[in-house]
Design a protein around this nucleic acid. Structure first.
Lengths: 131, 131
DNA sequence: ATAGCTTGCGTACCATGGTACGGAGTCAAG
DNA sequence: CTTGACTCCGTACCATGGTACGCAAGCTAT
């Protein structure tokens, strides 16, 4: 069950350097080197993998690495109201972001439409963003 | 009609330093200092403001500054197919991003729901992201 | 045993998008 | 005529999220 750092990294689709980077940031455990197996080598279990995958998912949800560190601290702790607050805040930010993207989508769609006919001549790109 | 740099900046809601940064990046014109008005001072017209606002809008659409530089070059030029291609590519990226955010939204919603009851005790944050 | 891979560690470097700082000049008002 | 506001310019610095580099030590297959 024990994994090396490169197996751990592979399992989450990240690079070894990234794992170490997260360890330095306190996002991941940095286990004591153990004497089982290779001398001085660290190894990792399924929990580490879950945690690493969590970091990537939470990043996908737009949390910064330091927010993720806070979430992880909460997970170990008991401050549910704080956890809910963070979730709510992020949820609002996500909704705003989605709205912003929908707007951008319209502008781009307009750009594509206005450039649609003809293959030469100026195409009013700046005007397409005046919405 | 001529504006100073700070008026230009204010008109687009950015800082003076940001305007100069964009000039250094080639996103904005860097006019020759003129002899009208204050000696050695530059000034800007409505086109500069439109352009600056365009930069901010395009950034909002998720373009990087160097992509925006390319769009601006296209706007001056005649490569419509390229402009359409950029728009299409970005459109796809935006759709993916929206989908990603919707997923994240679900995860966060789940997190908030699972932490909803009780104000103490552990709250399965990591589990909430296992989707 | 020697090459080659992986590990661990620390430090340096990268891109992106700015922000800040310091010095020097110009101008208008008090 | 000094003070304050604004300008110009160059350079330095910042956070974020990594990526790369170099070194020593260990395992493993040849």
């Amino acid at each position: 069950m024990a994994m090396t750092i490169s197996q751990l990294a592979k399992g989450a689709g990240v690079g070894v350097e990234t794992v170490r980077f997260y360890q330095r940031k306190g996002l991941l455990d940095d286990p004591r080197p153990s004497r089982t197996g290779r001398e001085g080598q660290k190894h990792y279990g399924p929990d580490d993998l879950r945690r690493l995958r969590f970091v990537r998912s939470a990043q996908g949800a737009g949390f910064t690495l330091s927010e993720i560190a806070e979430l992880l601290a909460l997970d170990a702790g008991h401050d549910r109201p704080r956890a809910r607050e963070m979730a709510r805040t992020r949820l609002e930010a996500i909704d705003q972001e989605i709205a912003r993207l929908e707007t951008a989508r319209q502008a781009l769609h307009k750009l594509a439409r206005e450039c649609a006919r003809g293959d030469a001549g100026p195409c009013p790109i700046i005007a397409a963003f005046e919405s």
